[in-house]
Amino acid sequence: MSSQQKFVAALLNAELPPPAGLLTWNGSDPAARFAVYRNNVQVSLVNALADTFPVTQALVGEAFFRAMAQLYVKAEPPRSRVLAFYGVSFARFIEQFPPAATVPYLADVARLEMQRVHAYHATDALALSADSIAQVLTDGENLPRLQIQFHPALSLLKSPYAVVSLWAAHQGIADISTIDPYTPETALVIRPQLEVEAIRLHASAGDFVAQLLQGATLGMAMEQTSRDHQDFDLTAILGLLIRSQTILSMHL
């Protein structure tokens, strides 16, 4: 092991002694000083996760969250120097973390929070104007064959839990006592200007957008969604997608 490799091993594992060859001017135990580095690494990375996952933290409390985050930091330290996106695999870690099993919706709330961060920092892109879209929509012949390119900030989360409502309750938007966490919800994450929004979609609208995201044509997505959902409201979801400036292009 190289000397920095030993340094890293000891940083990430508090049970290991500090690396050899450390000096202190007063002959004091270098372990106490090395602990400053260990603490900086741990605390700053746990803080980075707390910044990204505030509602996840609120759902389990700070002490539980930080203990769980510490284990995650040890198991999966960042692989990028851009910490904004640290924690992409945190939701999966939560799913496999036995003490969190009593809060089954925790992982999906974490997923939603990560998607919000991605949307917040996503590349800027100019949406098609409502007028241009209206023009495209009048071309009845080609319409079913069109594919839609969405804004890079847009993403979807289909959950067996009430992720959007749980998130909203922690912003003071909704009353937590009225929420049944076990109600399935689909979240549409968008960023019309600079502010990120998570909108609760009807299950049929969620399936429709999911198919478009996978590259289905409008015709295919409409047909499939109508077959699966008798209550599918095409006009409503298209109106929402247009109003919230999520459509970059509609092309053959």
Binding site: L11, A48, P77, P78
Partner: peptide
């Protein structure tokens, strides 16, 4: 300082001899 080892980023400014 150094702050990474290989792919792992440690997010602290670590000392060199």
């Amino acid at each position: 300082a150094w702050s990474s080892h290989g792919e792992v980023f440690l997010n602290d400014l670590l000392p060199v001899p």
